[in-house]
């Protein structure tokens, strides 16, 4: 008898990640310019603190730290899951959510809004429009072919992304100096202007639910489109579903927090090493892993050089690079 490929270990892994997410959230809410004890934070969150002294702390936790922490969680989860989708869609381990130009389009939208001196809601909206426009452009250009080849989609996306890169360089060089800093922060990814991510959470939840029936099909798709088709997967609809899902998730993340790099590329790889390649576990694990990594990075970004605030994007790579290199070179049991 072979023992069944027991999912118990993987489920335990997912539970552990949920637990770690909770701990990371608690850590983020306790740290900052004032350190608030975990017990007080929990009291504030559960609404059980009748103490008057806690009113000021309550404002800090609920109105300043919580929105930012939740934004980091949602953004990280969206980006990591989008990265896992892109890697399987393009069947390329180097793919990330930005490879097909979605972030480029978003950046152009956001930078134009910044140049015009618009408010943060308009910057988000403009970034979203740019991201979706870029997605439709790549979609339209690749869809003309009868059968979608991963290479064709990849090349179209990369060329479109390069085009956006040129527009971004132009916008940066044409902008007045006082706006450059804001623009650079946006490009590196920054969570300092975020609000409560209500809609974004809904997008994440919807994508997680849609991914449940997709996951077994993705497991077949990694063996190549022909093989997946021979096993009964309708390839074209699957490819477009993944593409649209990944793009919408990326656009949602980018309009919230700017072009935070690295999470989408590396978290799926880290999770593959920890929990395996089965997308039924890999997709939720990536979402949780991305959430944890970005939340920790963001918390460090606002505390290490306090009172100086670093852009979040800088810290994600500083944390993620050593972690990934360690896992990559670790001897496999």
């Amino acid at each position: 008898m072979i023992r069944p490929d027991t999912p118990a270990k993987r489920l335990a892994g997912l539970l552990l990640l949920v637990l770690l997410t909770g701990l990371a959230l608690l850590y983020a809410l306790t740290s900052g310019s004032i350190d608030i004890p975990a017990k007080t934070v929990l009291q504030i969150l559960t609404g059980s603190s009748g103490n008057v002294d806690n009113n000021q702390l309550s404002v800090i936790v609920l109105q300043l730290r919580l929105p930012r922490a939740l934004a980091a969680l949602v953004t990280g989860a969206l980006l990591a899951m989008a990265g896992a989708f892109m890697q399987v869609l393009l069947r390329n381990p180097l793919a990330d959510p930005y490879v097909l130009g979605v972030s480029g389009g978003a950046a152009v939208g956001a930078l134009v809004a910044l140049m015009l001196g618009l408010g943060s809601a308009m910057i988000s909206g403009s970034a979203l429009v740019g991201a979706l426009a870029s997605m439709l452009l790549v979609f339209g250009l690749s869809h003309r072919r009868n059968r979608t080849h991963s290479e064709h989609l990849l090349l179209t996306g990369i060329v479109v992304a390069t085009g956006w890169g040129a527009v971004i360089s132009f916008l940066l060089s044409a902008s007045p100096d006082q706006q450059l800093r804001g623009m650079l922060f946006w490009l590196m990814g920054d969570l300092s202007h975020t609000r409560m991510p209500a809609l974004e959470s809904l997008v994440l939840l919807a994508c997680l639910i849609i991914s449940l029936p997709l996951a077994p099909r993705l497991n077949l798709f990694v063996h190549g489109p022909l093989r997946a088709a021979a096993l009964g997967v309708a390839i074209q609809p699957l490819q477009w579903t993944i593409f649209v899902l990944a793009s919408v998730m990326t656009a949602t993340a980018v309009q919230l927090a700017g072009a935070i790099g690295f999470i989408g590329l590396v978290v799926p790889h880290i999770m593959r090493r920890l929990i395996g390649s089965d997308h039924r576990y890999l997709l939720p694990a990536s979402a949780l892993g991305g959430a944890i990594l970005l939340l920790l990075a963001d918390t460090l970004a606002r505390t290490v050089l306090s009172p100086m605030l670093l852009p979040t994007g800088v810290l994600t790579a500083l944390l993620g690079v050593p972690l990934f290199l360690y896992l990559l070179n670790r001897k496999l049991a």
Partner: peptide
């Protein structure tokens, strides 16, 4: 075709996909 790493068991189980329901689990 080479792909992301999977086990022999996972790979062979893929053959059941046509006989599964919509969720494919």
């Amino acid at each position: 075709e080479s792909s992301f790493p999977v086990t022999v068991l996972e790979s062979a189980s893929a053959g059941r996909h046509p006989h599964r329901n919509f969720w494919g689990w």
